[in-house]
């Protein structure tokens, strides 16, 4: 990497939503959101439950449309390519923009190492094999901070792992296909405090290389891990600012009300 680029701040956005709205049937759950997500930064999306923050996240890698009756309007660009353009394939989009869910979702029929390479296997003949595959498994698991805990039992079933380990395994699985962006949908909501802390440390590691977007209902977590924070209320983007600013000097009274605990 060239030093000037890193110095060049604010960094240019790698993922950008413009006038993005999301619907379930006729009801609009996200309204005209315009927001940038920058490379090598963590952006947190906060807001009371039901405010549309998970839906917004799911629009960013075209997962929203997999639900029956779900539709999207507006644009989302990844490095200035529109992911909703008519020729864009949602499958290709998802391979550049990884996602991890609230509950750990290891594939129960696969071993730990097979789970890590699950996203690569679908490449068919181009899928890495043998030593290459082993290197990828080790690299992704190290990246996810799980390697030391599982290196002796890579062939065992993934459902034998603890909840926190399963979640980090899912992050490793998402990293193995080298995404540009990783979306985390309340990744610690079902974990105990110690496991949550490990995932948070991992988020800090991740932003050294890629853009991270994290949805959370835990304000302290947003304050700890993110560089920027966006506050969403009833599907509207109320405020989007550097995390420090948003938590110390919110511009909008509704943001202030939320972060001081007056509703939500």
């Amino acid at each position: 990497m060239i030093a000037e680029e890193i110095e060049d701040s604010p960094r240019k956005p790698c993922l950008a939503a413009r006038e993005l709205s999301a619907f379930f049937g006729r009801s609009r759950v996200v309204s005209n959101v315009t927001i940038d997500f920058r490379d090598r930064e963590v952006t947190a999306i906060i807001g009371p439950s039901g405010c549309g923050k998970s839906t917004l996240l799911r629009c960013l890698n075209r997962m929203h449309e997999t639900a029956p009756g779900a539709t999207v309007s507006g644009t989302v660009t990844l490095d200035s390519t529109d992911i909703y353009a008519p020729g864009a394939d949602p499958i290709a989009v998802r391979r550049h923009i990884g996602m991890v869910f609230q509950r750990p979702t290891p594939f129960p029929t696969m071993s730990i190492s097979d789970n890590v390479t699950a996203g690569l296997k679908i490449l068919g003949r181009k899928a890495p094999r043998g030593k290459d595959a082993e290197d990828i498994v080790e690299g992704a698991l190290r990246h996810a901070g799980l390697w030391e805990e599982v290196k002796d039992r890579l062939g065992e079933s993934a459902i034998a792992l603890s909840g926190g380990q399963q979640q980090r395994l899912c992050i490793a699985r998402a990293l193995a296909i080298r995404p540009r962006v990783i979306l985390l949908d309340e990744p610690t909501a079902s974990l105990d405090p110690l496991s949550s802390q490990k995932v948070e440390e991992l988020v800090y590691q991740l932003k050294q290389d890629i853009a991270v977007v994290i949805v959370t209902h835990n304000l302290q977590q947003a304050a700890r891990v993110s560089d920027r924070t966006a506050f969403l209320l009833l599907g509207d983007l109320i405020e989007n600012a550097p995390t420090n600013t948003l938590f110390t000097a919110p511009a909008d009274p509704r943001t202030e009300a939320y972060i001081t605990g007056r509703f939500g």
Partner: peptide
């Protein structure tokens, strides 16, 4: 959630059905 996890990894629908 398993179906979603596979789709989020970039699995086509048919692979999601078959492999997962």
């Amino acid at each position: 959630s398993l179906r979603e996890a596979a789709l989020a990894l970039g699995y086509p629908r048919w692979r999601t059905s078959m492999s997962v």
